[in-house]
Design a binder for these strands. Structure first.
Lengths: 222, 222
DNA sequence: CGGACTATTGAGACTCCTCAACTAACGTGG
DNA sequence: CCACGTTAGTTGAGGAGTCTCAATAGTCCG
């Protein structure tokens, strides 16, 4: 068994019997776009694993601003609560399906299946590193750099049949809330990227990468 | 057993037998200030639990800038690697002691002790939320707000015999690298806080809180 | 006492945010 | 089929805040 193998794909790390154990205990949630899976402040009774689709985990600040803490993709674990209450709200961006596993069930399973627990630890550690990486990006000032980084992240996390074509399932507002920018700054950043022929848009929700090298340089921690 | 209990204190969550299991398998690391526990890029062979002291987990960017991804306090778990290699460097800020547990050992232990695995999951999930919370703070612009948030974080994570007195074990540079600010901005922020009589310094590494209400307001996600 | 390091303060450039107007796309209802 | 309202996205001008460069204190230690 490899120690801490990447983390992108939880299911690939699980043996068939482990998968069966989990999926047998799970309820399948079919969420349409905009469906709220759970709300911040509500009591937590289950953890979730995303199977398909994209969701957002966000928090509304006292100022009225909304910040998206993470986009949730396939195989991501979410719903790990604090003191028994969820701290974030999770809402579907696209049509999505998730597995819902009651807390006491998952605890029982892990109690008897330590190997599975290690896989979870690896997965959550991966998400922790993702979060830290994002903090690095937010720490920079350049709006174009932040957008470039998001594009690369989406490219890495979403399946893309055509090379150099990236889908953006989320709106500009959501991008802004995720990157810690104003909506306008996101728009200006995409305009600049387009103007410099680094990317081109096929409509507002699909991007073609024209100049990979420049994109990488912008996304890198320059 | 409570589902996901806070997370601040790992050891308090463990039964005596669990603690014995862990500490028996652990090597104790005594690190003087500035001692490097491990370096980014090196192969990972163990995970660590901080017992006493403060450390920093950082990464040097291609630009030459250094960003601190997390301060490590007592009971924090660190050293969860990516693909078998550490991605961050961990260095002691103060004199510190840590437990070092080889990877294969911890995996064997967790394999046979699912309950312990759940405690780890809770702990890492807690660190994940901490990281997300920090992302929120970094996303704001106000330097004073960021500094105020750091002060409150230190107050919460470090033992302080005297109320309203907070130790800052780290230097201004380290604060800047953590908050994503320039050193000068940190200095100006502390000056403003002092000028407005919200805090006062007993030397550069100790703060007295004079106006708790204002500090809270600044630190809040206003 | 000198030297190295840490911390503070000042002036100008740069970037983003806010407020605002404008365009485009879409669905509804007449 | 078209007018209309709503939502999403783009673009512009001014103001706020931080970053950089630079110079000035303060502190620890030999």
């Amino acid at each position: 068994m490899r120690a801490t193998e990447g983390g992108g794909k939880l299911r690939r790390l699980l043996t068939p019997s482990q998968q069966k154990l989990l999926w047998d205990a799970a309820t399948i949630i079919n969420a349409d776009a905009r469906h709220v899976v759970y709300r911040a402040g509500s009591a937590s009774s289950a953890i979730y694993i995303c199977n398909r689709g994209v969701l957002k985990s966000y928090r509304d600040l006292p100022s009225g601003k909304r910040r998206i803490l993470a986009f949730v993709f396939a195989d991501d674990v979410f719903g790990l609560a604090e003191n028994g209450f969820y701290v974030n709200t999770v809402q579907a961006i696209t049509k999505a399906t998730c597995y819902r596993i009651p807390l006491d069930t998952i605890m029982t399973i892990l109690l008897e299946n330590g190997a599975l627990g290690w896989q979870f630890i690896s997965k959550i550690a991966y998400e922790l590193r993702e979060s830290q990486r994002r903090t690095l990006v937010i720490g920079r000032r350049s709006a174009t750099g932040r957008v470039a980084m998001l594009l690369k992240m989406l490219e890495a996390r979403l399946a893309h049949p055509t090379p150099d074509v990236i889908d953006l399932p989320m709106s500009r507002s959501e991008i802004a809330e995720f990157l810690g920018l104003s909506l306008e700054s996101v728009s200006r950043a995409t305009s600049r990227l387009t103007y410099h022929q680094i990317i081109a848009f096929n409509g507002p929700h699909q991007v073609r990468v024209l100049n990979r090298q420049s994109l990488d340089r912008l996304a890198g921690d320059l």
